[in-house]
Amino acid sequence: MGEPAPDARAELAARQAELVAALVAGGTVPAGFDADDLGVARRALLRKRSGEVRRVWPLLAGSCPDFAATFAQWADGRVPAGALRDGWDLARELATAGTLPPPAAAELAAREATARYDGESAPRRRRLPAVRRVGGAVAVQAFGRVRVSG
């Protein structure tokens, strides 16, 4: 028994893509699946994802009231970008809306001063000194060391 038929891989690829889209990217429930079961799985993935963001963004998670619910609402249907970028995107959105709590603003300012993030690809460490302001927090980074005030 050698390689599976090319059709087998192609058909499986289409069905798996449809299922993953339904679970994490706001896609519709594929034919034949139990919608309730997929809903349970979708929410379980959101809980796991928020736990991962909590580890990478402890001040964001610790200072947002009911972070799990805030994150789940924001992330539902949004393609996972990894905990670092998920938390970064959410923090920026809350900052823009003026609802980012001060400890989380300090955390975001420190990250912004340390790395350059275009919102679409992996953040890249800054080689030059930088100053970034988020809300009332100011982060100053030089030679990789960050100082946050405010």
Binding site: A17, A25, V79, P80
Partner: peptide, 8 residues
């Protein structure tokens, strides 16, 4: 699947 990581 489809280039998207499910995360689990």
């Amino acid at each position: 699947g489809g280039g998207v990581e499910a995360g689990h």
